[in-house]
Write a protein that binds this DNA or RNA. Sequence first.
DNA 1: ATGGCCAGGTTTCCTGGA
Length: 258
Amino acid sequence: MLISSWNVNSVRARIDNIKSYLVKYKPDILVMQEIKTEEVNFPFDVFSSLDYESHVHGQKSYNGVAIISKKKLGNVETDIIKDKLKQSRIISAEVEHKKKKIKLINIYTPNGNPVDTPKYEYKKKWLDDLIKKLKSISKTNKNIILTGDFNIIPAAEDVYNPKSFEDDALYRLEIRKKFREMLSLGFSDVYRHFNETQEGYTFWDYMRGAWQKNNGMRIDHFLVSSSIIDNVKKININKDPRGGEKPSDHTPIEIELA
DNA sequence: ATGGCCAGGTTTCCTGGA
């Protein structure tokens, strides 16, 4: 089973890119972030014509997440975190794989910049609420896949210029600690599980020729429970879409479950 | 050495992104 996560930076502006990606790589499940549209304007028909069912937690202009799947999903929820600002940043569902009932959680963590503003406080609170929820879910379901745009650079090797990001909301020590806190609950950072030091950027800014210079960062992740890690055959950061026409600034990250 | 982008909506500027 191939599961992919991609911050598409507008599902409507990116629809041709997404279609090409689905046709070429045929993920069983694609979770998307920053769809930037309400459910009423979501292109359900495009995805159903490619045999995907769609589940959407939309929002006008900003944020918004969705899960599209070739496999039947159960128990879709969009409110497992109470979001004070009512932003659409999480959607979860259950999928069955090899007799395991897996809870798949798709997140779009707040960016948090600039750090001396309420935006940063919102990010910290949002991550604290997520961590609390992960703890409680873990009690009843041991098979969890947490994926999406975490807006966290976990370590120095995950950004082209760590020095300049020390006081950035994506890399501040306080934020990296929240990522470690998630790992301490028993999750594996799948990319680092398979790649000890190799860089694995998933985002390159549109500005300053970042893509051409490979000035990237690793902020999109797959975290899986210990019960799932042995099912993971491989993880791949698929750079093709980032190099294409009118790309998103993020590129898909994919895991293959055996 | 410096600045460089893109999307949506409130549309010819503003906000947000990372």
